[in-house]
Write a protein that binds this DNA or RNA. Sequence first.
DNA 1: TGAAAACTGTACCGTGGGTACAGGAGGGGC
DNA 2: GCCCCTCCTGTACCCACGGTACAGTTTTCA
Lengths: 226, 226
Amino acid sequence: MRKGQETRNRILDVAEAAVLQKGFGGTSIEELIVETGITKSGFFYHFKDKNELAKALLNRYIENDERIYDEIFSRARDLMDDPLQSFLLGLKLLSELLADLPNGHPGCLVATVCYYERLFDREIQETNRNAVLAWRRRFGRMFREIMEVYTPREPVDVDQLADMVSSVLEGGIVLSKTLKEPNTLAEQVLMLRTFVKMLFLPAIESPLVAVRRDQIYGTAGGSDQL
Amino acid sequence: MRKGQETRNRILDVAEAAVLQKGFGGTSIEELIVETGITKSGFFYHFKDKNELAKALLNRYIENDERIYDEIFSRARDLMDDPLQSFLLGLKLLSELLADLPNGHPGCLVATVCYYERLFDREIQETNRNAVLAWRRRFGRMFREIMEVYTPREPVDVDQLADMVSSVLEGGIVLSKTLKEPNTLAEQVLMLRTFVKMLFLPAIESPLVAVRRDQIYGTAGGSDQL
DNA sequence: TGAAAACTGTACCGTGGGTACAGGAGGGGC
DNA sequence: GCCCCTCCTGTACCCACGGTACAGTTTTCA
């Protein structure tokens, strides 16, 4: 039982890398079994067909993705008490993590599935949709918390704001991969951070404003701390 | 000569729709010739292999894409004299155009190629890279013009800012397609517009602005003008 | 030690990408 | 009226890949 899981995971590891580079249609089962070091029969013992492989791949990817966001933003939450500062720190940590990926971000499976949709069954499409909705809820929750304390400079819909985080990440990955510039993704995340900062931290300067708001958030020194 | 081009374009039309839904690997030549109403030999008369089809598809897509941006932003330029107002109008027009697409945005071929890269030759990858660089130059040019008149509230790199436009578009497409919510893409573009607006149109209202640069950040009340 | 789990090996099928030609319809230029 | 060129059709064939079927073998662990 343990051995089986191990092999299964090895297949998934190899498959994930291949699929992110070549898409599902471009990845052959043949190459997966060669690289994993098993036989075709062995492969079909673990996954009854390619669709089932995709399902397992996507679920594992989403779980891992969620875990990373959990870690980063809960760490940021521990370090900063203020929800906005905590979120801004989270974005900074995220951008650092992305910048440290040795070969750049390998790609997002959600996007891969999105551009392959019609060949998968409803279940996978629903899983993918739910993953994006989970991002919306995650970041939406954070922005709602922020909005309990801060008033945005411009009127914004919380869900749309939350989606902006996902958009910039997905788009940043595409740009980074296409340009073969690993940094681009990290830079885009920092750009998003600038957006959020500007949206909630009014430029001011004017102490008149802050006083009336029964909260004064002060930051010292240059404008680019976490 | 005219007849040939016509057939070729029909193949490309069918292929583009199919590829955006199922990826290159998921699109069979068989289905293309059935839907186009030609024979296999006919297909290979126009394209010597799938790679050449991809090349033609990508080039046509990019050309069309550029044409659309040219139209939108030059129209905006005609209507507004100020570079910032013109750009903001352009984003508005773009979001309206995207919102009016009957079945939502069909997907971006640049992203499709990006997630399929390894199976194409260097030429296609370079074409794709150049398309993204062209976006960077296009929007970068616009932001540089804006910056001759306006000073951004936060220090930003022009190229990174330009890339933000591409990121939000690419990411918005992925979200929109995955969620099956056509509006999401248009909303994301408007969100980006909000970002640009905030970045260049200083908050306003306090003539005291910048009194003290070693600042006190407060939160202001309702502040939702352009 | 024995049953279940985790495979291997072999053989076979259909589909799809691709090649190789041979030939035919239709139009334009001479 | 003929010829040539473009734009195809038809046929036949090859290999890679996804997938099935199933019999047999090794490994694991209770």
